[in-house]
């Protein structure tokens, strides 16, 4: 994975994101958002986060697009044009926050630096002990299903709660 390819992928991500927010037709916007999700999954795979890329491609880009299409079928795909007053207020907010974030980024270590606190503080413990403690060569799986298994278990509670919420909102007793 070359750096220039990654830089190109990161720059290209902006295109489907802008198309998705600019599209006047909500069906087109939703499908473009699906394309953005797949481009994002590709970028994450290029970054080496293969587990996250698989999950994004399946549930992020795939399932979210299907859910949004289902919601559009029951609502409408038309939208009214953007009022100019709101647009300038939003640009002001976005400009301020963007400049603040950009200024803070200058204090971050160069991207890919192996001597940052994130790379040397806790994570070597997992990388050196995972096989001995969990017999799992994939350290992401070891962290997710072993070291942080309660987190993953309670995450299913989040899913059940979300499903319950959808059922209460849309189910047969909701009217």
């Amino acid at each position: 994975m070359s750096e220039s390819l990654l830089a190109a992928l990161l720059a290209l991500l902006v295109v489907p994101a802008l198309l998705a927010i600019h599209a006047g037709d909500l069906l087109l916007a939703t499908l473009t958002l699906g394309g953005y999700g797949f481009a994002m999954a590709l970028t994450w795979a290029a970054l080496g986060a293969v587990d996250v890329a698989f999950t994004e491609a399946v549930v992020g880009a795939g399932a979210t697009t299907v859910l949004m299409l289902a919601a559009l079928l029951r609502t409408t795909r038309r939208r009214s044009p953007l009022p100019g007053r709101l647009r300038w207020a939003a640009l002001l907010v976005v400009g301020t926050v963007g400049l603040a974030l950009g200024a803070v980024t200058a204090a971050l270590p160069p991207w890919g630096d192996p001597d940052t606190p994130a790379a040397v503080h806790v994570s070597p413990r997992y990388l050196t002990s995972a096989v001995a403690e969990t017999a799992t060569p994939n350290v992401v799986t070891a962290v997710l299903a072993d070291y942080r298994s309660y987190d993953t278990l309670i995450e299913t509670v989040v899913i059940v709660t979300a499903g319950l919420g959808c059922w209460l909102l849309l189910g047969p007793r909701s009217r």
């Binding site: 986060a49 587990d51 996250v52 999950t55 994004e56 549930v59 992020g60 399932a63 979210t64 859910l67 949004m68 994130a118 790379a119 806790v122 994570s123 997992y126 990388l127 350290v139 992401v140 070891a142 962290v143 997710l144 942080r148 987190d151 993953t152 995450e155 989040v158 899913i159 709660t161 979300a162 499903g163 919420g165 959808c166 909102l169």
Partner: peptide, 21 residues
């Protein structure tokens, strides 16, 4: 570093759950 990968897997699933609701 495997920790951001593991944490972001959780974030994606929560993201889909909130979008669904």
């Amino acid at each position: 570093n495997p920790l951001p990968h593991a944490l972001m897997l959780t974030a994606i699933v929560v993201m889909v759950a909130t979008t669904g609701v």
